[in-house]
Simulated assay, not measured.
Amino acid sequence: MVSDAADSRLASAYGRLLTLLADSLHVDPFLDQIVRVAAEVVTPAVACGLTVRRDGGAFTVASSGDLAAQGDEIQYGADEGPCLEALRRGRIVEVDDLREDGRWCRYREHALRLGIVSSLSLPMTVERETVGALNLYATRPAAFTGTARRHAEAFAAQGTAALTIILRQADQALLHQQLTDAMASRSVIDQALGVLMGQQRCTATEAFALLRQASQHRNRKLRDVASEIITQVSGQSPQPAPGFVAPRHQM
């Protein structure tokens, strides 16, 4: 019956991940919820943290509580520990009883003072690259064996799949913003070229040369110079171009 209840919590967690995936507009809130759900589902975990790579180092992007945040930070300071090993080697690292574990001496002493006795660190691999590690901490020994280990691995796999999707969505959102910005800049420059062509009675190529020359002399961006020209002539700032709308897939 205990196993059935645990399996039911895991199934519910999958549903929550899907809901989070649909509702999250940004990566950060999604990561915060992943660690909270993980700490609830993988009992008897006390806390969960998520470590990611960045600029050659590692840092915690989300944690369900102070124990996980401090446990992660100890490892960064010592440059060793289970979550860093999982991140660097791309494999699961389990600690049954830190009191009897001889690995990571610089991490071990400080972690025990916090009350960490066992832990489980699971790599999160996106497109063949280990981008993070999900770190579960417990205050009793051998907390992540049997059902707990199975549920942790299953949840990490589902969390990684969801993370892959939301990162792709973030990339698409960035692309959308870049396209929108490019269109806005192009619109302002085109308006300024029209003004210059009318004032100087010149071609579009000649007007662009004049605009570029002014940009270089003033050491200002082309768009800023164009915006200033439009404001001087019209008395108001240039109007933005219509927003970029991504094409919808045909059903």
Rank of each mutant, 00 (worst) to 15 (best):
C83G: 00
V195H: 05
V117D: 00
D190C: 05
A6V: 13
R201N: 12
I34W: 02
A133G: 09
D181E: 12
R140A: 15
L50R: 00
V95A: 10
V35S: 07
A133T: 10
R128G: 05
R128T: 10
I166R: 00
T125H: 02
E40D: 14
G56H: 03
A184C: 00
G65N: 04
F155P: 03
E73R: 15
R201L: 08
C105H: 15
A62T: 04
V95C: 10
L17I: 14
Q216A: 15
S237L: 14
D79N: 12
M183Q: 11
T231G: 10
D23Q: 13
G132N: 05
Y76A: 08
V245H: 10
A157C: 03
L17Q: 07
V126G: 00
D32S: 14
R99I: 01
A11I: 14
R16K: 09
V52H: 03
T145R: 12
L87F: 06
Q239M: 10
T180C: 04
P44D: 04
D171F: 02
Q216D: 15
A143R: 02
V37W: 10
Q172L: 15
D23W: 04
A138T: 03
R140Q: 12
V2E: 10
S187L: 02
Q158K: 09
V225S: 06
P240D: 06
I74Q: 08
D4E: 13
W104M: 02
L25T: 15
C48P: 02
L122H: 11
A148W: 11
E100A: 15
R212A: 11
G159A: 15
G115H: 09
A39F: 05
E153S: 11
D224Q: 08
E109G: 07
L17C: 10
Y107G: 05
T231E: 15
A47K: 03
A154T: 06
E40M: 06
Q33T: 07
L87Q: 05
Q178Y: 03
I74N: 01
A5S: 08
N135S: 08
A162D: 04
V42D: 01
